[in-house]
Design a protein around this nucleic acid. Structure first.
Lengths: 226, 226
DNA sequence: ATAATAGTGTCTCTCAGACACTATCGA
DNA sequence: TCGATAGTGTCTGAGAGACACTATTAT
């Protein structure tokens, strides 16, 4: 098969387009990102975000391409996948001018461990050198997550589908890096109907906690900041 | 010159990448977007956002490409230009799978009138049919502007460099589509140092109002929502 | 002086943080 | 019954809306 552009119009060099995803999870109480070792040039042997080319015949959209690549390389479906931004320039790839549409995904660590993924987790606070401009992409993903966490339910996607309010509270604190008053947190999450009670309760050594799930469509913003 | 990709690797069809910008301004008290008539297929004769291909040798980044295209088609430099998102798919362009990196820009109407631009302004509330998926891009730009306006100084970029607080208040109301208490608005804008006083005052028929300018780097978020 | 616009003082309501309180379970 | 975790009541302080008030200019 030969190189073929989809249009006959532009008779000049075009940037190559790829898709990369920063898959974030909480591992050992710290934010971590899923990395894969590159098996070809450029940056062969270096850690990189999972990514690849759009498959024009198969992928209906860039988001579908990102989801397919996560399926192939991490063996999982992510409940949260959002376009982060497009990174471009002459310098980011030694082969020439290129462009990558970056996504960021949130996944509970349990899902990632269950799928026997080709990815390794690295805490975002101590990343190895990454291929291309992938370090910038991770930074942008973490910044986006932190920013949105103060007024949305995004951190809930780092937990399994059912969780206690104490667990959700802990995740918010870990993501935001600040202490939050538990009583106010409970009131806000419940009053604003971010979350709804599930049937069962979580049993442990002591008084069992109620279980909750995210309400449908609730990656939505809160009315006020946390 | 022949079609040439920048990499030798991918031996399969690649999406074509373009850049499009939704240039927003306030015209007659309503949000409007700058449109240009397409002079070639597809969608020839139809209104579209100003856009084009990346010029690999000239443009250092996608943002530089967007700025160049605005310079060429609107004859102006925008004080605010932000990446909006990348729109993609097999259906958006009849020639095949394509991808466009969309930007949105804010400009005072006076600047647009001064530059004798090839663009015509259309209120976003009553758009004609647009080429490609440009209607979705305009919707996304307006949503982004409205969303960020409740906690940032973005609307100030719809005004000239110097403005009164009454003018800024009016712009916020027009963008957000809600009434805002003027006293609270003044206090918030001043207390949070969004804005700094300029030397002179605006003179009119009655008591002159103080002039202000945006503080450096103040597209930044407020501490609390407006 | 008056009209008109610029700008302030102050009350109230809402909401988040602080923190002490009660509730409910296992052992 | 006790220890531990789950969950609530209530006070306080900060900030936004309401709105009446004062200030400063042109005519």
């Amino acid at each position: 098969m030969q190189i073929r552009n989809m249009s006959v119009e532009p008779n000049f060099p075009m940037p190559i387009a790829t898709v990369d995803t920063a898959l974030l999870t909480l591992s050992g109480g710290a934010l971590a990102v899923g990395l894969i070792e590159r098996n070809r040039a450029p940056f062969i042997g270096m850690a990189a975000l999972p990514g690849g080319y759009v498959h024009v015949p198969d992928d209906n959209s860039l988001e579908a391409a990102a989801a397919r690549i996560l399926r192939e390389k991490a063996g999982l479906e992510c409940r949260y996948l959002e376009q982060l931004g497009t990174f471009s320039g002459a310098a980011r790839d030694p082969r020439g001018w290129s462009l990558t549409v970056a996504y960021f995904a949130l996944v509970p660590e349990a899902d990632l461990l269950a799928a026997n993924s080709a990815l390794t987790l690295q805490p975002v606070a101590s990343l190895p050198p990454l291929a291309f401009d992938h370090a910038s992409i991770v930074d942008a993903a973490v910044a986006r997550l932190r920013g949105k966490s103060s007024y949305s339910a995004l951190p809930a996607f780092l937990l399994p589908a059912l969780f206690t309010l104490a667990e959700l509270h802990a995740v918010y604190q870990q993501v935001l890096g600040t202490r939050l008053d538990l009583a106010s947190f409970r009131r806000k999450i419940i009053d604003q109907e971010i979350v709804e009670p599930a049937e069962s309760r979580k049993t442990g050594a002591h008084r069992p906690a109620g279980l909750f799930r995210l309400r449908a469509g609730q990656a939505l913003p809160f009315q006020h900041r946390i």
